[in-house]
Design a protein around this nucleic acid. Structure first.
Length: 376
RNA sequence: GGGAGAGUCGCAUAGCGGCAAUUGCAACAGACUGUAAAUCUGUCCUCUUCGGAGUUCGGUGGUUCGAGUCCACCCUCUCCCA
């Protein structure tokens, strides 16, 4: 994997760059749709390409390992052969599930034991095991196995957890470098900065993570419930400490406003379930603000979903029609909303890139932030 | 004409002497940030300063400290027999 830093904004720390992977190039800053089980929920590959203009999508190690399982993925020839997404992919390691499946897992020095949410069976993830699984899944970018700490998180716990995440990282890197991609192309490992909301821990983590000189670096453990200002502050701190010539990936973030703000702090990559999950729950993000498509006020509003939208669905369907589909519990509602939201997110980062290159990012960002938070 | 049964907050249901009244659906609103999420939460008779207050269970009377629940009559509907 190669990263070319192309432009740094004049008015803030935003950057425009290009990542080159075995499956193609990625223009940054980028938003990566989440496709946990190898599919972006409710969206076809063709729609991701043509309407949404996604450049890279995520998969999840824990979920793909449980289902369909490694044998199937190996026999298919890797995840991209399996799901027909012939472009770049990134797999999260299962570190988020250490957090989100808090009551079904047990952490030890060696790794983490999960009880499957599907059938209750027990599975053990060690850093080495996770590297092997991510090799088998075959994404272009793979994440180190970490513990995503919850919020609030006591300092002592955060410190101990960080120690563990760092020791796991060392094992991940070692295993990663001992092995190679099994499908004939190169993979890149990204380490993850942790440290909860504690600046000294975050600094320590940035230093440690940077020492491995991986192809890119990620910031994890944020947007888990901490105040948003704190999230920005810690993101800024990490951006200042992470190398400039490598992509910076802020995991799990966020709202359109979060993304613009964090681009201005120097983040290059984002992922979040929000456009898809909230879309399926009838929430639409638009350049004019947020809409709840189930609200009665759209009942007879036959104007297009989003006049400024870039996807086909935006002009093709009306607000009243989409509300009808949601009220009738039609599958099409989920598809339309997911396509719209993802296209909106991708268009947002594309515009951000253009404004970074044009040199007026900050002004544009501030103008957008004012509009994006409104409720329509 | 004779017999049996049923009427509860939009719809459907529960209730068998202490009830503003169960549950489901619908409706209305909210939440969702590396997806255990096409999920979850709240409201859902009226008013409310959120402490309560006022009117309710087809209708009218009655029994009772107390009635959606028991009794009488009436109204409506369903089924069966003619």
């Amino acid at each position: 994997m190669k990263f070319k830093l192309q432009t740094v904004a004049k008015d803030c720390k935003a950057r425009a760059g290009e990542i080159e992977t075995a499956h193609g190039k990625i223009q940054t800053p980028i938003f990566m749709p989440v496709g946990t089980v190898g599919s972006v929920k409710a969206v076809h590959c063709s729609e991701l390409t043509t309407q949404i203009k996604a450049q890279i999508i995520l998969g999840n190690t824990y979920h793909l390992y449980l289902r369909p399982g490694l044998d199937t993925i190996r026999m298919a020839g890797g995840i991209q052969r399996f799901n027909s997404w012939n472009r770049p992919m990134l797999t999260d390691s299962g570190g988020f599930q250490v957090y989100s499946l808090g009551d079904r897992r047990k952490i030890t020095e060696d790794g983490c034991e999960f009880r499957s949410h599907i059938d209750g069976s027990k599975h053990f993830f060690s850093p080495e095991r996770v590297m092997d699984i991510e090799r088998t899944i075959g994404a272009d970018i793979i994440m180190a196995f970490d513990e995503c700490t919850p919020f609030p998180c006591e300092y002592d716990y955060a410190k101990r957890s960080l120690g563990l995440t760092h020791r796991w990282l060392e094992r991940c890197v070692y295993r990663f470098r001992q092995t190679e991609g099994i499908y004939g192309y190169e993979q890149s490992l990204f380490p993850i900065v942790q440290g909860s909301v504690y600046k000294d821990l975050r600094k320590e983590s940035c230093k440690y993570v940077t020492s491995f000189d991986c192809d890119g670096n990620a910031i994890g453990g944020l947007s888990v419930g901490e105040p948003i200002e704190q999230m920005y502050e810690l993101t800024e701190l990490c951006c200042e400490m992470l190398p400039e010539d490598k992509p910076r990936y802020l995991m799990g973030v966020g709202t359109p406003i979060n993304i613009l703000e964090c681009i201005s702090l120097g983040i290059d990559m984002f992922d979040c379930v929000m456009p898809t999950r909230n879309g399926r729950n009838a929430m639409l993000f638009t350049s004019e603000g947020i809409m709840n498509m189930k609200n009665k006020k759209w009942e007879n509003d036959f104007s297009p979903l989003d006049e400024n939208g870039t996807s086909e669905v935006d002009l093709l369907y009306s607000k009243a029609y989409l509300r009808h589909l949601f009220m009738a519990k039609e599958i099409l509602a989920l598809q339309i909303a997911s396509i719209h939201n993802l296209a909106f997110y991708l268009n947002l980062v594309t515009q951000a890139r253009e404004h970074i290159v044009a040199g007026d990012f900050l002004k544009w960002k501030n103008m957008m932030v004012d509009k994006l938070g409104r409720r329509l």
